[in-house]
Structures are given as structure tokens and as C-alpha cells.
């Protein structure tokens, strides 16, 4: 079994425009499922033509509520990203790290994950 998985944003969203938070949630769910199985994930932005912070907050920023920065750094990478989109993603990541420094937010996010997993 492969320990690596490539997630194509274009395929999951079904459009080159990655705008809505709901679409970001679908991407997040794929990444989080793979990270929980300790797989290495490459997130491909091939054919993506528009991004928002709302989409990236849901897709990537949210991961910092469940996984440590070390886990994410070791197991998640990006490919085919346009240079200015990298700038946006970096800002989203830094914002997420700050956001989850608040223990109440981190705890709440953890509880939601546990609740979701219990329901599965």
C-alpha cells in the first residue's frame, strides 16, 4: 500500500475557482483523513486559477486545530502553486497558527474532530 497520496484541488472542487469555504472543507476532509492514516500528502494546485483566504482557511488552516505544526510540516507539501498563491497560503498558515494559540479554540476544534469521528 502506498504511503503517499496526491490530492488534486481541481478534481475535488470541480472548478479552477477555489473560492468558497464549503469547497475548502471538502479538501480539508480529504487531507485530514490521509494525515490521520499517517500518509504523506501532496496538495496539487494544478489548473487552479483563483483562490481566497476563506477557501484556504477551511482547507489548510483548519488542520492546525487537529494536527501539530510538526506533523503538518513533515507530512504535507504543495505543488504547482503560482508564486503569489504561495504568499497567500503562507499568510493563511501563519494566521491559523496564531488562531489556535488560544487554548479554548484549540480545545473546541479538538472536541469537534472527536465528535465527528465518533459519529463516523
Amino acid at each position: 500500500m502506498s504511503t503517499q497520496v496526491s490530492i488534486q484541488l481541481y478534481e475535488i472542487v470541480g472548478s479552477p475557482l477555489c473560492i468558497a469555504s464549503d469547497d475548502g472543507q471538502k479538501v480539508h476532509d480529504q487531507i485530514a483523513a490521509a494525515l490521520r492514516k499517517e500518509l504523506t500528502v501532496t496538495l496539487s494546485f494544478l489548473n487552479v486559477e483563483g483562490l481566497t483566504s476563506a477557501f484556504l482557511n477551511a482547507a489548510v488552516g483548519q488542520l492546525y486545530g487537529e494536527f501539530s505544526a510538526e506533523q503538518i510540516r513533515a507530512n504535507l507539501s504543495v505543488s504547482d502553486m503560482q508564486p503569489d498563491d504561495l504568499v497567500l497560503l503562507k499568510k493563511v498558515v501563519e494566521t491559523a497558527k496564531d488562531y489556535f494559540k488560544d487554548p479554548s479554540r484549540f480545545k473546541k476544534a479538538q472536541q469537534e474532530v472527536l465528535g465527528d469521528n465518533d459519529a463516523e
Binding site: S53, G61, T95
Partner: peptide, 9 residues
């Protein structure tokens, strides 16, 4: 307040 961060837009 929830699991998705924000505040950048």
C-alpha cells in the same frame, strides 16, 4: 470561533 480560522479577507 469555530474550527476554521479567519480574519484575513
Amino acid at each position: 470561533k469555530g474550527p476554521i480560522p479567519g480574519g484575513l479577507g
